[in-house]
Structures are given as structure tokens and as C-alpha cells.
Amino acid sequence: MISSDTMRGYNDIILLSLLLNQASYGYELSRQIRERTEGLYSIKETTLYSAFERLLRNGYIVSFFGEESFGKRRTYYRITPKGRAYYFEKCEEWELTKTVISKFVINQRGI
């Protein structure tokens, strides 16, 4: 299980990447995260919605109401051009981070 502290900075990347191709809503996104990571990471509801709030405030996503098949009104989120730019920026940053941190991390074989 990954600590939520470690993941805090990366939730934005994860959510934006899932929104790149299509708009979606809260539950669907958390389900996709669970599936894609094969259960290694499961985002808490409150973390998910904190991230939405932050992304909305910065103009990286917009929200709108969509009708679901059960007739329940759900809030959908769509990525904005600004969000897209931010996502790619964060991806580059991650590559850099990965390189830096890996200099200090040893795996079990000691390499």
C-alpha cells in the first residue's frame, strides 16, 4: 500500500491523464485508477474531491452536470487546454524527479 502522503503530489497527474481523452465523473475515475494500477493504488474519496477542487480552482478542469443512465445527476469533469499544458509540464517534471530520486534508491539486489 502506498502512503497517501507520497501520492499527494501525483494525484493531479493521474486525474488529468485519465481526463485527457474523455470527460468523466468521480466514481468512474477512482475505479479506473484502481483497475489500471491493479489495486496497488486506491484513491480515497476525500483525496479525490480535494484534487478536483484544486484543479477546478486553477482552471485545469471544468465541471458540468451530466445525466447518467440511472437518471442520477452526476458532476462530470473535463480537462481544459490549460490543464493539458499543465499535465505535460508535470510529466516532464516527473521524469526529472524519477532520475533524481533513483540516484538515491537501491533495490533489493543492491544495484
Binding site: K44, E45, T46, T47, Y49, S50, E53, R54
Partner: peptide, 13 residues
């Protein structure tokens, strides 16, 4: 258990 901590959300809001 998957709900998380409401304070996190309140701080953001």
C-alpha cells in the same frame, strides 16, 4: 475505509 479524511476536503474547500 475508502472514504478518507473529511478534514482534507474541508481544508481545500
Amino acid at each position: 475505509s475508502e472514504f478518507g479524511n473529511i478534514d482534507e476536503l474541508l481544508m481545500e474547500l
